[in-house]
Structure formats: C-alpha cells, structure tokens
Design a protein around this nucleic acid. Structure first.
Lengths: 219, 219
DNA sequence: ATGTTCTATGAATGTTTGTTCACTGTCAAG
DNA sequence: CTTGACAGTGAACAAACATTCATAGAACAT
C-alpha cells in the first residue's frame, strides 16, 4: 500500500470524522471549504489519489457516496496491553483493534500552534459494522502534554458516559480531539492539558467518542 | 411517537439497509426505482412523513444526506434471555439490544408470496457507533417456518463467520434476510426453510450480518 | 538544464438530485 | 354527501454536485 501524503491523510480523516458525526459523507465542496481550497479541483485530485492508493472508493456520478477499504484498519495484535476495564477486573488484551490516529490539539488552530493537523475518526466506515467495545488510538499533537500524553502515544478508549475530569475523545466539527472534560453546572468544557493553550474551550454540540482509560507510551 | 404506515416502514428499512450495505444513503430516485414508483414525488412525500413522525431527519438541499433518530431503537430490557455464547458458557442477558425487524422471506418476491415486506437493517444509522456484539431481531415473514422460526419471533444474532447449515442474517440488495446457509464447494446458497418457497437461492455478493444463535418464541 | 510528479487555481459543463406545482383517485370519518 | 388525510402520477425547475479542461508554480530526480 502506497503511503499517503499528509494532506491526503488529513482529507481522508476529515471524511471519516464527518461520516461519524453526521452519518453522511461530505461533498467535495464541504471538503474544499474545510481545507480552504480555492478550487474544487484540488479536492478532486486528492480524492483520485486516495482512490488510486486503494484506501477510498468513489461511486462515479453519485453525490456524497464513498466506500472505505476495510483493510486500511491496522491492529495492535503484536502488542500485549493490560487493560483496566470497568469495575475492578483487569483484562489482558492481546489484540486491541487499532483504529487510527487522533489529535490532541485544537483542530482549527493547529496550523498556528504547531500541532500536527492529522486526525482520524475512531471508526473507519468500512469497519464500523461490528466494532469492538474498546479500541486504541494514536495520539497526534501535544495539547495533552501536562497529562503526560504525548505525540506518538497510544490511548485505549472505552465507550461510556464520561464524568467530570475524565479524558475523553470527542468529535468537534468533524474532527476528533482528546481533552479533559470539565463540567461546570450544566455547561460542558474541554480542557487542553498544555499550559500554552487556552484553558477552557466551551463546547456547544459535542459528541463523546469514548473515555481514555489507559495510555501506552511511545518508545 | 406516531406509528408508521407499512410503506413508510419499508422505505425507512430500505434506506437503513442501503446504508449498511453501501455506506452511503440512497438518492430519492434510488428509492423510487426500488419501490417502482412512477414519480419521485411519491418518495418525497414518504420522506416528509418520516421526518414529520420524527424517525428521519433530512438535510435540506444536500444530496444523499439523512440522519436517523437514535430514539427509534427499542430494546428488550424487560425481557430476560438466556443466551448461548461462543464456547460452552451460557450468558444470561437481561438487556440484549433490540435493533429492529427482519424479514425471513425473499425481498423481491414478497408481494406475490404473502410475506410481509417490511425489513430492517440490524444497525440503525443513529446507533451504529458502538453496537453490541450480539443483538436481537424481530422476525417478519414465514419463510423460516420449517425451522420453527415464525413471524413475531425474536432471534438473537451473533457476529461471526458462519458454517454450512447455520441460519444467518444476510444483506441482499439492501435488505436483510434470515435464511439457512448452504455451502456446496465454493458456491454459496441461501435456503428458505419453507416448502412453499424455491429451495436454493444462489447468492453472488452477500454480506453476512451474523449468525442466528437462539430464538425467542412469540407468545 | 529538463522532464516529471505533485499540488493548486479558475472557469466551465453536464448530470444528479432535491424540491415544487398541478392534478387524480381512494378511503374513512363526520 | 362532504371533508380531509393519504398515496400516487407527471412534468418541470433550480440548486447541488461531480467532473473536465486549461494553466502554472514548486519540488525533485534525471
């Protein structure tokens, strides 16, 4: 499998995030607006590249119609992880499905803050039929650095309803972010664990993907 | 929640099945062709009705873009079911998620054979983020009558790779069917367990949703 | 130096697709 | 008998959308 360029990966990630959040694919113009292209043809070329490299299938002539190759989903079958499940039982997972990368930075401010812009939805479209209860994500960015979650680390995400103080994976504007959840009364904020970033980020409509339960440090 | 008419239910089911199988929504004209309407407006009216009744959300102006209300998913929380899991352990599930109805008949021949045409994809779009490993389906139709699976029964479906002779839930042409899987060499057939129906149904591209593991009889 | 690939702009085209309007028939309630 | 909700035909429109063509700068290997 030919490797993807940074922009191709970012576009693919955005598309996956859009599907996860909205349940339908973005149009070419949606992608164009997201990445601030001046021409739809820029997007078109990237989509062609994604299809040529075998990670995306376009349906000719149809609007907002794509498929994603299931094979793009890697896994952590080689890695043995002790995984703290709900309750007190510790499960030893030898094959936590690995479902992509995730940015810990602010999606829309990434370019000016030096955080890697690439992010990935936790559930690729081709593999969402019967996803596991828990999954692993690769962290990109440094906004969780104060929580000792750094670029390159792997985070185990478990579905569930998060409490105040939990580190959550949340979908905001089609992008997945990793942040600490702050509840103040009825208001919900996301807090980046990096002193260089603004502390509280008010969230109107956020979709919690899951709760970060364990971090596997990069070596 | 206002009740849906038969046709509305069928259209909603077809849309869900289409998303499950193709990963993108059907266009109005796709639905029109499926139900042999002479006018797109027939579909349009039904979609309006589905939205008015709160089970479907349309995105105005956008093509192939819909959302499904998560609340439409009922459950079996009241029912306690002993569920035979993989291996020999028997699990007592008190809340198997209930994900819709399924026809046991032939999707395209239903009108002439008296089988209820309504079917439903096992994973509604609004609830597919983190579906459970096992789920329950309501059986519609009588094509599995010889296997003592009748209209109104509930079947517990478990994901997995089926063997020859297993009763499976399979997606064919956007519709979910419940049939026995027959493997003859490299060829795969689906067999309806009803002497009134043609015995073997050759399948070119079928998507196995899961294997029927247990039947909860209707009372 | 030079061709090639990648990435992008800008404009144009033609199809797909949602949406609207006018009209008809059916069926049950008042 | 009438009214109104429901389901459908048929035609037409306008916006959304994918796609194509012409062009060009940057990076990079030959």
């Amino acid at each position: 499998m030919e490797a993807l360029t940074k922009k191709q990966q970012a576009i693919l990630d955005y598309m996956k995030g859009h599907v996860s959040q909205h349940s339908y694919w973005p149009s070419i113009r949606d992608i164009q607006a997201k990445f601030r292209f001046a021409s739809t043809n820029a997007v078109f070329g990237h989509l062609q590249a994604l299809e040529r490299k075998g990670v995306l299938q376009r349906i000719p002539g149809a609007a907002r119609a794509y498929k994603i190759a299931p094979e793009v989903v890697p896994d952590l079958s080689e890695t043995v992880i002790t995984y703290e499940g709900p309750g007190e039982n510790v499960i030893e997972l030898d094959a936590v499905p690995f479902l992509g990368s995730i940015p810990a930075g602010f999606p829309d401010y990434t370019e000016s803050s030096g955080v890697v812009a690439s992010m990935q939805a936790p559930l690729p479209a081709g593999a969402r039929r019967r996803p596991p209860q828990a999954f692993a994500l690769l962290v990109r960015g440094d906004s969780m650095i104060a929580a000792d979650i750094n670029d390159g680390d792997t985070v185990i995400i478990e579905p569930g309803t998060p409490k105040h103080g939990d580190i959550v994976a949340a979908l905001i504007d089609g992008e997945t972010t990793l942040k600490r959840l702050i509840k103040q009364g009825s208001k919900v904020y996301l807090k980046a664990e990096n002193p260089n970033y603004p502390n509280l980020m008010p969230v109107s409509s956020l979709v919690i993907q899951g709760i970060a339960k364990q971090v596997v440090k990069a070596i």
